[in-house]
């Protein structure tokens, strides 16, 4: 836990920027922009883990910070570039389920809701970092799920998905000591495979159907087809 006020404030700043990056993912139309915000979000997750790990020194948390930044700021964007065709990256979403101001408004409501939902846990946790990390982590988890539901493009949906895992992890670095490095390795590995598999699937969809607007795929349903 952080004892020095400076570190605490620094962690709070990282948390705020982490949340802001998540909002950025909700608000960006461009696929490329969405990836940038995901990278930013992951970097701030790393920064928060780093700050929490400095004092008292926790090699686990410092390891988490390192793995996280290497994995999500370098390897994953590279993997996305490799598996998903260039054309998909330059896409913009024209028709969204909700327009940007409306989705930002909903996102705000979700973030505030997450704060109130987690109040009972924050008092249980006691430590000062938990007050920042628990609500913001849950907010990022829910915002990721929200991004998934309102986005129609394949890549932003995938990013919403892995942003949810960032959210879960942002909470855990403040509440679950001793588990970090191991779980970080598991999650890092998992995110890599998820990006690879969904990337391959996106490429197949792009090749065979000709679009990556997965939100509008609706051949499968119960009504008898004409």
């Amino acid at each position: 836990m952080v004892s020095e006020p400076f570190l605490y404030q620094f962690n709070a700043l990282a948390g705020g920027l982490f949340l802001l990056a998540t909002f950025g993912m909700v608000a960006t139309r461009q696929v490329r922009g969405c990836i940038r915000f995901y990278i930013l979000q992951s970097v701030f997750l790393g920064v928060s883990a780093f700050v929490l790990g400095i004092h008292p020194v926790s090699w686990d948390l410092l390891g988490v910070a390192a793995i996280n930044i290497i994995n999500k700021a370098f390897i994953i964007p590279w993997l996305l570039r490799r598996t998903i065709p260039e054309e998909v990256h330059t896409r913009r979403e024209i028709s969204q389920v909700l327009n940007i101001p409306a989705s930002l408004l909903v996102a705000l409501v979700i973030a505030i809701g997450a704060y109130f939902l987690t109040l009972p846990w924050v008092s249980l946790a006691g430590g000062s970092a938990a007050g920042v990390n628990i609500p913001i982590g849950l907010a990022a988890l829910l915002l990721g799920a929200f991004t998934l539901t309102v986005r129609r493009e394949a890549v932003p949906q995938l990013l919403g998905l892995i942003a949810m895992e960032n959210g879960a992890f942002f909470t855990s670095i403040a509440i679950a000591p001793e588990l970090h490095l191991f779980v970080e390795l598991i999650v890092a590995f998992d995110v890599l495979i998820a990006v690879f598999v969904i990337g391959v699937l996106t490429r197949a969809i792009h090749e065979h159907i000709g679009t990556t607007e997965v939100g509008s795929l609706a051949v499968l349903r119960e009504e008898p087809r004409p």
């Binding site: 849950l138 799920a145 998905l161 879960a168 909470t171 509440i175 699937l201 197949a204 065979h208 997965v214």
Partner: peptide, 28 residues
């Protein structure tokens, strides 16, 4: 790799992985 199979695979991946992310939070 036809339209139906890819759509089914996409829905399967996204919904169940979303569920798993929620479960991850639960396990933590």
């Amino acid at each position: 790799s036809n339209r139906e199979a890819l759509e089914a695979a996409w829905k399967y991946a996204i919904l169940t992985l979303t569920g798993a992310a929620i479960a991850l939070f639960g396990f933590l």
